[in-house]
């Protein structure tokens, strides 16, 4: 506690020292010592937090690279005397991993395309076309986010079942072309920041709404569209419930369902399971590291107001 106060004061002092007399006074005494100890304290806190969050990753990676005999050693330890890729080989042999990867990539890509078009055009209507009733529609869209999916899940399943489309990707993909409340809201927030004068000028020049949407709003909204793409891709990639309900044919399994059935069949083969979990997570970790900025900005954009 003591240290926090010191470090907090250190910044405050350095920030305001030019403006406030007491700041200058304090600053004169031991500025460097205070700043340095504050900084060291901050790094210690941050390194401890980071270690907690990283530890499970270290466990997964090392477990996946150890022979079974060492995985079940007491006490457990992270190191190994016999690093090996056997678990990865076992995981790839036990399940058609590449098939699952392809299926998952297909579903995720179609989801991104569907949401990019549908959510953005609805968001355009809510942000840039002035019409009576659009505020009511916005409230309705936000309200649907509160609805537990369990309420609609059963009748929707019964509906797909009636027209014989359960057991295919259709129930997973078709809804993606009708927009998603969360994405619409996120894009609407972003579109509102695009200057109205730009759009009115285009309207005066006789541009149609479709043209304004396509050639002005979409190009300017690229960061938000990237954020949407990453979100949609990740959600589709990790979804468990819907593929569990709709997919029966092992040839159509996604990675989530594939990993789930791998556990069903092989249970405590922890080495191979951790290898498979690593393989499944890597594409998403890569997507995240690649598009971090937009992604985090997207969360902040929808999280507030």
């Amino acid at each position: 506690m003591q240290a926090t106060e010191v470090s907090a004061q250190a910044t405050e002092v350095s920030a305001i020292s030019l403006r406030r007399p007491n700041g200058i006074w304090r600053n004169v005494r031991q500025p460097h010592l205070r700043l340095a100890s504050g900084l060291a304290f901050r790094y210690i806190v941050l390194v401890c937090i980071a270690a907690l969050y990283l530890f499970p990753f270290a466990v997964v990676l090392t477990t996946s690279l150890k022979p079974t005999s060492e995985i079940f050693s007491l006490p457990p330890r992270l190191g190994s005397d016999h690093w090996t890729l056997d678990n990865y080989r076992a995981a790839l042999e036990a399940m058609p991993f590449w098939r699952y990867l392809l299926n998952t990539a297909f579903i995720s890509t179609v989801t991104v395309i569907g949401q990019l078009f549908s959510s953005s055009i609805v968001a355009y209507s809510l942000a840039k076309i002035r019409w009576r009733g659009r505020d009511a529609l916005l409230i309705l869209i936000v309200a649907t986010m509160m609805l537990p999916p369990q309420v609609t899940m059963i009748p929707v399943y019964i509906g797909w079942n009636k027209i014989g489309l359960t057991g295919s990707y259709v129930p997973l993909l078709v809804p993606q072309f009708f927009g998603n409340a969360f994405f619409i809201f996120m894009l609407r927030q972003f579109f509102r920041g695009i200057p109205e004068e730009l759009i009115d000028a285009a309207r005066l020049d006789g541009a149609t709404e479709l043209r304004i949407y396509r050639s002005i709003v979409l190009p300017l909204a690229r960061p938000a569209l990237v954020a949407l793409s990453i979100f949609a891709f990740m959600w589709a990639w990790t979804d468990f419930l819907l593929p569990l309900i709709y997919i029966n044919d092992p040839q159509q399994y996604t990675l989530s369902i594939g990993l789930y059935s791998f556990f069903s069949e092989h249970g405590v083969a922890w080495g191979a399971l951790m290898a498979a979990a690593t393989l499944m997570s890597m594409p998403l970790v890569a997507v995240f590291l690649f598009g971090q900025r937009q992604f985090l900005r997207g969360i902040a954009l929808t999280g507030i107001k």
Partner: peptide, 20 residues
């Protein structure tokens, strides 16, 4: 980045990691 990283791990993988 590190604190956010676990959030992008697919939930199925994350749950098995924690079972272990």
């Amino acid at each position: 980045t590190i604190v956010f990283l676990p959030t992008v791990v697919p939930v199925v993988a994350a749950t098995y990691i924690w079972r272990w």
